[in-house]
Structures are given as C-alpha cells and as structure tokens.
Design a binder for these strands. Structure first.
Lengths: 211, 211
DNA sequence: GACTGATGTAGAACGTGTTACAAGTCTAGA
DNA sequence: TCTAGACTTGTAACACGTTCTACATCAGTC
C-alpha cells in the first residue's frame, strides 16, 4: 500500500462525488453502490478482502471510476465508516438517551455501539484499521468521524438530543473518552483485549473522568 | 500490503532471531544491521521509504533473510519501535524523574519523549503508523512496546526508578494516559494536531485523572 | 442533429510487499 | 575430515493498490 503524499492530488478539478451530496442522481447512486460493496466485502473478509478490483466489480463500476470517487482504499474505507457513524448520529438525535447519570448514559451509548461493532468483527477490523492507518490526505473524512463520535457522547453526557454548549472541560473529557474507546477498539480488533476488557476499560475511564 | 491471517505461520520451527537475544553472534549482528537500516530509511523518508528491498540492500542481507528475521514490514517497524522504547526504559531506570508531583513527573517524561519523536517526524510517522496498523500476528512486539511505556509512566508516577506495586486504579490510569498519548501522537503525525495540542491534550488527561 | 467537454469503461501496466526456489555456505557432530 | 541440516543468497514470480491509455457515452450548447 502506498500512502498518499503530502501534496494534494492535482486533479482536473473537483471530483464528481467527493461529498455524499451533490452530483447527479446517477452519481449519488454510484457512490452508494460503491460504499455498499465496500461494507459487504469488509463484513465478509475484513480489510484484506476489500480489494479495489472486487469493490469495482461488485459495485458495477470501472476501476477508474472507483478511483475517481475515492482516491485510495483508505479513503474508501474511512468514508464507509463515516457513513455508518453518521447514521448513528441521526438515530441519537431522535430521542433522549436512557440512564440516570452521565456515566450511565455514556456507557449506554458506547456499549451499544461497541456491541454492534463486535457483532461484525471483520467489518470492524477493516474500518478501524483503515481509520488508524489514514494519513494527512484523509483529514476530511477522519474529522467527520470524530465529529459524529463527539456529538453522540456530548448528547449522552447531557441526556438530551439537543446538547447545549459544552464547556471546554467537557470537550476535553469527551476527547479523552473517544481516545480510550478507539484504543480499546483497536486492541479488541487485534485480539489484545476481549469484549469484557473493552467495556471495563471504558467504564474506568468514564468513572475517573466524571467523578 | 497484505496483513497476516489469523492462523500462525507454519514455520519450520522457531525463527533464527525472532528475539533480540539468542542466535549466533552473526545473527544478532544481522538483526542489528536490519533494524539500523530500517530506522535510517524511516528517518529519511517515512513509512513509504521503508521498502523491504531497500532495507535488505542497506543491511546487506538477502530479501529472503530479511523475511526470515521479520515476517512482514509491520513486524519490522514495530520491532524497531520496540527497540527504541526499550532504550528509553533502560535510561529511565538509571535515575529518579525530576518533578515535585506525579503530574509534573509524568508530563516531564512524556513531553521529553514527545519532543524527541517530533525532532524526527518521518521516523515517527513510520513507527506510529506501523504500530497502529499492526494486526494480531504482531501481538508480541506490540506488547513489548506497551510494557515499556507502562513501566516508564509508572516510574514517573512514583518518582523512583524502582516503582513498587502499582494498584489496580493506578494501572488503569496509566493505561488511559498511554491511550491518550498514542492518540495524540497519531493526530500529530497525520497533521490533525500541532505540537502544542499534543502537549495540552496529555496535560489535561493527566490533570483530570490524577486529581 | 452535430460538437464539445466531462464522465465512465475496459484493460494494460507499474511498483512494492510477499512468496518460492535453486544453489551456495556455515556449523555441529560423527 | 566429512556429512547432514540449517541458514543465506540471488532471483524470479505473484498479488494487489494504483496509474495510465484509448475509446464509449452522456449532457448541455450551438
């Protein structure tokens, strides 16, 4: 795998469908097919099974087209992750998180999400490893994922879908919780932690940070 | 890049120099040359510049030999990281860490190490990304790195080279600090944080956790 | 309807991680 | 010293991410 250099790619202009929205209906449809194929292949065989030729074939686009939409395998996978996370955010906006205390609510949302990921270990492995391997050129997509995660945790912290302002201290706490969650997730993906460990490690972090 | 499957490799027995010690003098010497070449290439051009053929050539071993010593590029880079970290641990054993409080001492060691890494951005990029991308087959080397980091922080926490027992709570705190530090490091490597951000994010975590 | 530029297609080609193989070299033990 | 087996070498081959090229298609403009 070759990581993309620091320089931006000298494309002939904006890509046709870099953003989830925009482009013609056919283009949005192609983009969807590509991401669906990515998720499907990843769910079956993990990171290695997401082969660009296979994605192109399953999505019924040419290889060149795939690369026009997503400039690398990492972009592709992180975009897929971003799409999944965005769904979660939308869901969390609908209703208040159950739980008496901030601790309980945060654990509720993180555990729910963790268990959802653990039900599809291969998929999670693919997405998490791509996320961790991403370099500078993927900043946009990475940021999208980070924002989703932050939003969901902030909502859980306050217990209401419309979290007001978060203080600077709260923002710092949320960032730390995210870091711990991601670290735990990657430890789980690579077999260095089991499911109990993940849950416990997050619980301890939340407890220590919210006391 | 192809990640190694879940199954262990069916080697014909133990590798000649998987561990830093053991093997003949010539083998330890080869291992050293290989890791030196790795560090040197990484320092110059980062992850992409560590090409297996180039490493083999610079270390003056055949490609097949390189693979006999390190079964993949990731193993190679994480082993290099482990060697560097081990040096640090040895150094930290020599004398007490300066600083009045645990907070000060922990910040002292982490900042010192962070700044050392930041002086060689390409090298750090290579090592950190390899660490993050590592899969199940690299568990041993990863664990070595984790242990080094934990030891150094534990020593700083207590302020003496011979840290006694760490309580379970302390161990949890140390793990969280490590997670935050690694996350910050990867954010820095990929240009999502600058040096000040890294320092601050760790400072906040340590403050919140040790209060 | 014909032209034009952007987009899509099919497939070859290239680079680098990884594996395979045949032949040379070194080492321990008879 | 001789031999068996492990280790090393040099090189070719393979897989997959990525790039490139030639051609087809489609949308908008005249």
């Amino acid at each position: 795998m070759t990581s993309v250099s620091t320089e931006p790619r000298d494309t002939d202009g904006p890509s046709p469908a870099t953003a989830p929205t925009g482009g013609s209906a056919a283009q949005r449809e192609r983009r969807r097919r590509i991401l669906d194929a990515t998720i499907s292949l990843a769910a079956e065989g993990g990171f290695d099974a997401v082969q660009m030729r296979a994605v192109a074939e399953q999505a019924e686009v040419a290889l060149g087209t795939l690369y026009r939409y997503f400039p690398s395998k990492i972009h592709l996978l992180v975009s897929a992750l971003a799409r999944e996370f965005t769904k979660d955010v939308d869901r969390s906006a609908i209703r208040a998180t159950p739980g008496e205390t901030a601790h309980e609510r945060i654990m509720y949302v993180l555990n729910r999400r963790t268990r959802a990921l653990q039900k599809q270990p291969k998929l999670t492995e693919a997405l998490v490893r791509a996320f961790m391997f991403a370099d500078q050129s993927v900043t946009g997509e990475i940021h999208e994922v980070g924002t989703s995660l932050t939003t969901v945790i902030a909502r859980a912290m306050h217990g209401t879908p419309d979290h007001g302002e978060v203080t600077e201290e709260e923002a710092a706490i949320i960032r730390i919780i995210s870091d711990v969650w991601l670290s735990a997730l990657i430890s789980w993906v690579t077999g260095r932690m089991d499911e109990k460990d993940v849950e416990k490690s997050i619980d301890v972090a939340v407890r220590l940070l919210l006391r």
